[in-house]
Simulated scan of single mutants.
Amino acid sequence: MSTLRVIVFNADESYAPTLRATLTSFDFVRIVAEVDEPAILPHVVKQFQADVLLLHLDPSPDSVLPIAGEVAVSNPQLAVFALSESTDGQLILSVMRRGFREFITKPVDAGILEDALRKISVQQENAPPQGKLIAVLGTVGGVGATSLASNLAVELASMTAGRVALVDLDYRFGQVATFLDVSPTYTIADLASSPEQLETHVIERALVQHASGVHVLSRPTHFVQSDNITAANCVGVLTGLARMSDYVVVDGPNRYDVGATAILDLADLTMLVIQLMVPSVRNAQRILQGMQEAGFNLDRTRLVCNRMSRESATLPASDVEATLNKKIYFSIPDDWPTMSASINLGEPLSTHGPKTRVRNAIRELAERIHVPPSSGGAAEESAKKGPGLLSKIFSD
C-alpha cells in the first residue's frame, strides 16, 4: 500500500493531539502539513503535494467551508474529508455539494476513518513511491547525532541503487558538510526561499554529491538566512527530496520545539539518540513525554544508545529502559579515537575505519532499516521492569 500524504486543517488547538494520534496510528499515513488559518489553505495545497485534505470544521464550519470548497473544486485530484461533531443535515448536505469525499462525525471511529483513507491509498497505487524519511534527533549536545546521521546515510547509500539524501537541519551550527568534507554551492536556505512546490531540477542544483553516493543538503552559509526558514519551508524541501530519493536522512530537528512537530509528523522513523548519562536520559524522557502529549505515534520512534561501553561509569541500560518505558532499539559501541579521527579528516567510517566495531554497528543498524526484521518492523515492547535506582532521579 502506498504512503498517503495528508494535509490537516484544525483551528482547535485542544483537539490537535487527539487528531494527530488518530492519524499517526495508521502506518500508511504521513502528515505533510498542519494548518490553522482557512485563508492560507489554497497556498498550502499548492505548496505541498498531498493526497488528502482533512478538515476539522469545528468550532466554526462557516469560516472554513467557503475556502475549502474552492480548494476542492480547483484540486479535483485531492480527496477532501470533513470532520465535525455536528450531525446537522444541512451541514452534511453543504459539505457534499462542495465535492468533499467524506463526512466523518466525532468522536471519530478510527476504523471508519482508516477504511476511508485506505480506499484513497489503494487508488494511489500507481503513484511513484515515496522515499523513507529518517529523523535523527539528539537528546543533548555532543551525543553523536550528526555522526550517526552521516554514517547511516553512507551505509544506506551502499545498499540501494536509488538516491540517499542527507539533510542538515541545524541551521546555524550544523556540521554535516564538514563531517563528509564537501563544499556546497547552495544550501537549504536557497530552497526554502521558494514559495511554490519545488521542482526536481531545483532540488538537484542544491545538492552536493559525496564520493559514497550520498547527496548532501547543507545548512545555510550565513546566520541571517536561518531566521527566514520556516517549518513549512523545511517540510516542503523534505517532501520534495522524498519524491526523488529512496531514503532521506535528516540530522535534526536539533531541538524539540514547535517547528520540530512538522518534521516529526513527516518522518517514517525517528531515531532518538541517547547516552547512558543523566542529562541525556532526562531530555529523552521530556521529549518522549512531549511527543506523547502531542499525539505522536511513539511506535515510529526508536531509542539508539550511542557510545556504549562497559568501562564507562554509565547508568544501567535496564534502568534507563524502565525510566523511559521504552526498549533500547540499538546500541553503538564507544570508539572515540576512531570516530574523532574520522570527523577531523572528513571521512565516513566506511573509509576511515571499515573494519571497526563502531562502523560495523552502524552498518547493522542500516541493514535493519533497509531490510526490516521478520516482525515487519513492529514497535518495540515497552519495558516491563519496575522502577530501579533511577526512579528517584527522574521523578522530579
Rank of each mutant, 00 (worst) to 15 (best):
H43K: 14
V140M: 12
R101L: 04
R219N: 11
Y256P: 05
V371D: 14
P354Q: 06
M339Q: 09
A260W: 03
Q209E: 15
P38C: 08
K327R: 13
E102P: 04
L148C: 03
T178E: 15
L303G: 03
P59F: 01
D115C: 03
L169W: 01
N254W: 00
E114P: 02
A50T: 13
V44D: 06
L55K: 09
N10M: 10
V304T: 09
P373F: 04
M1C: 09
L23M: 07
S194V: 12
E85R: 14
D115T: 13
S60T: 13
D227H: 07
F28K: 07
A322M: 08
A11K: 10
F223A: 15
F394R: 11
A211E: 07
A82S: 13
P66S: 06
R310G: 14
G89W: 03
A39S: 12
K106V: 08
P348S: 09
G69A: 11
C305R: 12
D227K: 08
H43Y: 12
T22N: 10
A153E: 04
A378S: 13
V167P: 01
A232G: 09
I67F: 02
V278C: 07
F330K: 06
A341C: 06
A262Q: 15
S14T: 15
D334R: 07
D51G: 05
G213C: 06
D170A: 06
E380N: 10
T178N: 13
Q77G: 10
H56K: 14
G376P: 02
S312C: 06
L169R: 02
G252W: 03
P184L: 08
I393W: 05
D251L: 04
D181M: 03
L180N: 04
P348E: 10
S158N: 11
V164L: 06
S375Q: 11
L156Y: 05
V304E: 12
D170W: 01
Q289F: 05
I203Y: 00
H370A: 13
A379S: 10
T239F: 00
L349D: 03
T338W: 00
T160K: 02
G236R: 02
Q123N: 12
D27I: 05
K106L: 11
T301I: 15
V71A: 15
V167N: 08
S350Q: 09
R97Q: 10
L324M: 05
V164W: 02
E13N: 07
G353Q: 10
A153M: 11
I362F: 02
D51Y: 01
A16I: 15
P66L: 02
E347I: 08
V224N: 13
A153H: 03
L113A: 03
L54G: 04
